[in-house]
Design a protein around this nucleic acid. Sequence first.
DNA 1: CTGAAAGCGCTAACAC
DNA 2: GTGTTAGCGCTTTCAG
Lengths: 348, 348
Amino acid sequence: MSSRVKRVTIKDVAAAAGVSTQTVSRVINDRPDVADSTRQQVREVIQRLGYRPSALARSMIRRRSYTLGVVTAGLQFIGPSRVLHGITDAAEEEGYGLLLKQLPSFGSTAVDPILDRLVERRVDGVIWAVPEIGDNHRWLEEHTSRLGVPVVVTSTRQPTDTYVVNIDNYSGAEMATRHLLEQGYDHIGHITGPLDWWESQQRKAAWADVLAEAGLCTDEHTWTSGNWSSASGRRAAQRLFEQFPEMDAIFVANDQMALSVLQLAAERGLRVPQDLGVVGFDGIPESGFFWPALTTVDQDQHLLGSSAVRVLIEAIDAETDEETPAESKRLLLQPSLIVRASSLRNRT
Amino acid sequence: MSSRVKRVTIKDVAAAAGVSTQTVSRVINDRPDVADSTRQQVREVIQRLGYRPSALARSMIRRRSYTLGVVTAGLQFIGPSRVLHGITDAAEEEGYGLLLKQLPSFGSTAVDPILDRLVERRVDGVIWAVPEIGDNHRWLEEHTSRLGVPVVVTSTRQPTDTYVVNIDNYSGAEMATRHLLEQGYDHIGHITGPLDWWESQQRKAAWADVLAEAGLCTDEHTWTSGNWSSASGRRAAQRLFEQFPEMDAIFVANDQMALSVLQLAAERGLRVPQDLGVVGFDGIPESGFFWPALTTVDQDQHLLGSSAVRVLIEAIDAETDEETPAESKRLLLQPSLIVRASSLRNRT
DNA sequence: CTGAAAGCGCTAACAC
DNA sequence: GTGTTAGCGCTTTCAG
């Protein structure tokens, strides 16, 4: 077992190299004012001793940790983990460390202890990658100033004291619904996500607006809610088939739920897309391999994550340089529609 | 914008409360030897000033950061992110912070810089949650001693100087293949994952061993490889249908690839499970909603992650207490078979 | 080009 | 019960 050895410190290196700790410090920070021969020598000693400077001590003095706090929720789901993937990639690239925290549940308002941990570890900034549910973001807003560092929020409704990076859910749902109309469907149902989620509300609003504009019905009986899971999607689809028998197409708020719509359709002998058009949302890689292949709204969650990192680092730098960062605090990424077999009734 | 305010320090609190920093220290650490009235008073000042002790300074003195380094790869995939979810949950519960690092690619051997970052930040231990590909783990072994802290590895082949937590892939694949035999299939093909992955090798070996034992053929033409993605699974299935036309069942190394096998079967008018039995591996929640519902080997990756954290923390404590931790360094979790429609030819 | 002194924010080890 | 002194490992002055 690798026993806990005493760490090599800058003093050890200095002693072994016969120089002052100061000189060692200069070498490890690549300062120019060191004689080449000295530098060479110190480097060798560092190598030989396996010395690694303590980021802890450094952060203390420099008052900058080069660490970003990331708060997520629901990492078991594909969406959040894709965002995290983008965050991780970008942070790695920018040379920042990541301190990862997770809310006990999506809707949790127990924000305080999480924020405390982040402050204690002196992160340089925070990415709040938690979906907006109920008023769990208001809570954040109230306590965000206490952080003393910039915050980037993904998925939020109104401009706050924080930076916002998000994907345009409304626009994505518009594209999906319009596409179904263009394909000649005219009884278009909708399975929403949980309606306390802002994203769900956006997607539903767009669906309703587009149908209303086309003079079509969006009554209570034409939609129902799921909770994002395939299991809930199946139950929702069953309800919808019953309460909206004329339905000839469904816009489903995510791909997982759309998957079970396809399953149920197959069980009931409904042909997709002839008898039923289906469009999902998310653009997970598997959606192209459903049967039939799923038309879906592709949102680049990796880009969302990496953008959040860049915006945050810019904000940190701006604050450090004392320049007021007049740049935009808001970034809205556009999703795109991937058209596949599940909605292609008019083959051209 | 929340401007970077000067942080409140222990001195500020001490001054405002009219006590020494020592007393404040005692209060924030819940030491018993403080007068109740003093404690009360100090607490109020802390509250009023919004003081948060610096974990940086603390870690330096205590020589313990209560932070775990986590190294992952391929967070865009469901497997790794489910493991990470388990890690996050357990760490949160145990009061540890998580420093997240990601390898540039699965097979990357650029381990050194990652390890350096972890050492510099003085993590108390490391979880190496990277799948074993080629010899990327040997590299780790060679450099692990330099870390000076315990390491837990998920997915590895031989006992090393590190702790090992893993899921029994061989046993899972055995169950899958035996199940197909029991259902009366006798031309059982296999789509493997990338064969430089240890997991893929294990699953393939079990499939071959069980078939050999039953006197069945496992020639070259009865299997082919994918790369885990649904797209690759589809191509693999196409090859397999051609090169092994007698095939009446497939064991597929993961659920994503099994999804496209189902898609292809549907396109070709093959009935599952009557004409073709299909079993996957992973047990992703969506697999129950494929058409038909997929029989699959369920591996609890959340448990894998959380177990890794517990094992690691135990190891850290053991080393700190100078007790030699005679306990087992190896934990092998058992998967289980979920039987669904895709392989149920003999309905009982 | 190099070194000495001071201190980041906190706690361990002593005093009192 | 409480305060004082020292120092974790590093960098920032400021001398030379």
